[in-house]
Each structure stands twice: as structure tokens, then as C-alpha cells.
């Protein structure tokens, strides 16, 4: 689920910048459900959720709920037909000032999805907002999706798409590469283009200077 973090509901540039973003990838965003994150709003500020809803609709986005924020804001949101949805991740604390002097705040943890059974043909697994770790093989015809990294501790025969929402630092790792297709942040390569020194080998895949780079973990002839 997409989350829109509202910093300043009165901002004039919010929706113009949003519609610009949507125009870049209209198919990706078309009629997507959006949750409004109110965490950064001051407790007393209540905004016009009906207006926000309508303006999001103009951007081809559909507001479905709110998360974070406070009771008064929740009530206002509910009146506009936006229920409170439980937050899909641990509360982020890094954006706020430290609660107490001298107390260190841990960095945000990205949820990691760990799958320990074989991912069979026809199955699709998505790790939203985090990494995907598969400790078994992935069959041809299966699809792994993650916003973060993808690790396969087995043979990768299906497709793997890391950095799905644009993270260019995401990587894919597998113990044996026999994949149909691999992709990072939208850049992809199909198996026809794999060179012999990586096929059936332990491989890591990352983006280097805008190019998709597939390299064996161990130099040939180790």
C-alpha cells in the first residue's frame, strides 16, 4: 500500500508536485490506493480531508485511510470517510527530535520477509518496503518482488525484481543463477543475455553507474 506523508496540508506545491510524480509513471500509479500518514502533523492541526481526498482523485489516486496522528484528526478523517488503518511498519522515530537527551534512537528497521519453502511456479511473493529472503529454491514461473534486496539461498529459476519502487541501491543475490529475468529499480535483463560465467553460479546483481551488473561472487578459477 502506498503511503503519502503529509508534512503541511496547506502547502500549495504538494499536489502539483504529486501530479508531476504521477505523470512520470502513470501506469504504476493509476488508481492506486493511498494511505495518508499524519505522523508529522502537529497534534492540534486538523485538515480538510474531504478536500485532500478530491485533489488526490484528480491525480488518479484513491485515499483509503489514515495512519499515525491523533484523535481529533482521526475523527475528522472518519467524517470524510477515511478510517484509521494500522501502520504497516514500526513507528518511525528518526524524524522526530530525540525524546530525551542522551538517549540514542535506533535507525528505522525495514521489515524483511523470510520465506523458507520452495517458491513454486505461478506464485508471486512481494516484500513491500523491505528485503525478501528465500531460503529455498525458486521455480521457473515464480516471481519475487521486493522494494529492498532479494536473497535466494538456493537456485533462482524464476524472476526476481528488487528495488521495485525505485531503490537503485537494491541488490539481488542467489546461490545459482538460472533466472528467467532479473531487475533492479526497473532495469532488467533476461536470461538470453546472461553470459556463461554467471549461469548456474553464485551471483550478485546490482546497479553500477546506471548499468545492471551481474557478477559471480567468486572469481572464476578460485
Amino acid at each position: 500500500m502506498m503511503v503519502l506523508k503529509i508534512l503541511d496540508p496547506a502547502s500549495e506545491t504538494l499536489f502539483s508536485r504529486l501530479s508531476e510524480k504521477v505523470r512520470l509513471a502513470p501506469n504504476f500509479f493509476r488508481n492506486s490506493a493511498v494511505v495518508l500518514d499524519l505522523e508529522c502533523l502537529p497534534e492540534t492541526q486538523v485538515c480538510d480531508f474531504g478536500d485532500i481526498k478530491a485533489r488526490l482523485r484528480d491525480c488518479n489516486l484513491i485515499a483509503v485511510g489514515v495512519q499515525g496522528g491523533h484523535r481529533l484528526q482521526h475523527e475528522a478523517a472518519l467524517r470524510a470517510g477515511l478510517p484509521l488503518v494500522p501502520s504497516g511498519r514500526p513507528t518511525r522515530t528518526d524524524n522526530r527530535p530525540a525524546q530525551a537527551a542522551g538517549q540514542t534512537v535506533p535507525p528505522p528497521s525495514r521489515p524483511t520477509l523470510v520465506v523458507s519453502e520452495v517458491v513454486r511456479s505461478g506464485r508471486q511473493i512481494y516484500a513491500p518496503g523491505g528485503d525478501l529472503v528465500v531460503t529455498a529454491m525458486v521455480s521457473a514461473g515464480a516471481e519475487l518482488l521486493a522494494d529492498g534486496h532479494i536473497h535466494v539461498y538456493g537456485t533462482l529459476r524464476g524472476r526476481a525484481l528488487a528495488g521495485l519502487s525505485g531503490d537503485t541501491t537494491a541488490r539481488i543475490f542467489c546461490l545459482s543463477l538460472e533466472a528467467e529475468m532479473v531487475s533492479i529499480a526497473g532495469l532488467y535483463r533476461v536470461n538470453e543475455d546472461f553470459t556463461p560465467e554467471i549461469v548456474r553460479k553464485p551471483v550478485q546483481i546490482c546497479l553500477k553507474e546506471g548499468y545492471l551488473c551481474l557478477e559471480p561472487f567468486f572469481p572464476v578459477g578460485r
Binding site: R123, A140, G141
Partner: peptide, 13 residues
Amino acid sequence: VRDSDRILGMLAA
């Protein structure tokens, strides 16, 4: 073989 893999997925899910 591929169809068997698919049905194994069905069994698991």
C-alpha cells in the same frame, strides 16, 4: 515437470 511444480505450489497454498 513445470505443471507438476505448479500443482506442488497449489498443494502448499
